[in-house]
Design a protein around this nucleic acid. Structure first.
Lengths: 202, 202
DNA sequence: TATAATTATGACCAGGTAGTCATTTTGATG
DNA sequence: CATCAAAATGACTACCTGGTCATAATTATA
């Protein structure tokens, strides 16, 4: 008569995660349009019908798969930046977190870079995503605002500086993804950090 | 008996262009996936069947619509940079051309920014596109290589520097497209140029 | 104007896929 | 073990859309 035992709930949650992981793998490999719902089910080792027991639509799977990781990235980023004392280290932490995340979550980043970002410009986007992204840049801007107020960097428009950082970090990740020509590595991040430091130095 | 009079050829070419322009408008508004071939035909004021007299498939329309503009942007860019004498002015020209292009070809840039770029990472891409893009960065890299050899800038990896420029210029255009929060304008480009100059100064 | 060639049309078709649901399997409970 | 609710299944359907082609309109030629 138990409507749902505790063990039941855990199993359900586990399966949910497995589905999302499978979805990320498939979407990363094939992109949203070329992915068929059955592909995801197969990758997850379940039947299509079962998928629809956990998610209402292909689109929702996609969104959920990305949102989960986006939250994590945001949290990691936030933690690392808060732990860093100086603006320079905070900046380094921001870049570092992204590089680390890249190592362990390529699927997510591939989807994010290759098609998700473009969604901003078209139809509506899940508000939480907007928030997450805006929040990320706002945090960065805050760092620069503080540093500028303290005279640690020259007085720049903090939002513009933050946007610059996010442009550069995106570029780095994109180059990692497609190894365009020569291999890119940590040099790339070091160069970006160097560029930023020189550009911002008081 | 004339197989095709000269006036005929011109009319055909004109229609072809009209189709591509219509295609850009629609693709920019709705994205590739959400666009139905009939949308393009309607926008161009012709019937769907007629479209297929000029192009063999939806994908080819998309590619042709973008390739046309990409060639133009490349040409403009090349011309402006060649005309500029110093590395600094060449860099300014690169950014400027992109900003100008943005004014007059929003449709193209919207498609390019929001979904086309992501294609690099998935399936094959028209080789001419690869070439155009790689060539663009290579030209930029060349500028830096020369400037570094002359001691006009500090000795940086030219490819990395070029990549940085293209990351920043992309960021600018993207921010223009979605007026995220406050309006962005030429300040944005000026800031980017400033960042680059400071970062590269000998 | 009559004739023929070129160009345009849009109803139609074939293929493919998101989502459903009647049926089966699982596993908890007494 | 018997019973039954919850979970899983996959064949099926309803719909959509890229591309075709027989027909019609247009334009050039004689």
């Amino acid at each position: 008569m138990a409507v749902s035992s505790p063990g039941r709930k855990a199993a359900t949650e586990k399966r949910r995660c497995a589905i999302l992981q499978a979805a990320r793998a498939v979407f990363a490999r094939q992109g949203y349009a070329s992915t068929v719902v059955d592909d995801i089910a197969t990758q997850a080792g379940i039947a299509k019908g079962t998928l629809y027991l956990y998610f209402p639509s292909k689109e929702q799977i996609y969104l959920a798969a990305l949102l989960e990781e986006a939250r994590q990235l945001d949290a990691d980023s936030r933690a690392a930046m808060n732990a860093a004392p100086t603006w320079r280290e905070k900046l380094g932490a921001y870049l570092q977190v992204r590089l680390n995340y890249f190592e362990s979550h390529q699927d997510f980043l591939r989807i994010y870079m290759s098609e998700f970002r473009g969604m901003f410009m078209h139809g509506k986007l899940n508000p939480e995503f907007m928030h997450l992204i805006q929040q990320g840049e706002a945090q960065l801007a805050q760092v620069f605002a503080v540093a500028a107020a303290r005279g640690e960097i020259r007085p720049v428009n903090p939002e513009l500086a933050a946007a610059t950082v996010s442009d550069l970090s995106r570029g780095i990740m994109e180059r990692q993804l497609r190894n365009w020509g020569r291999p890119v590595g940590p040099d790339d991040a070091a160069f970006a950090l160097d560029v930023l430091c020189r550009a911002l130095a008081a």
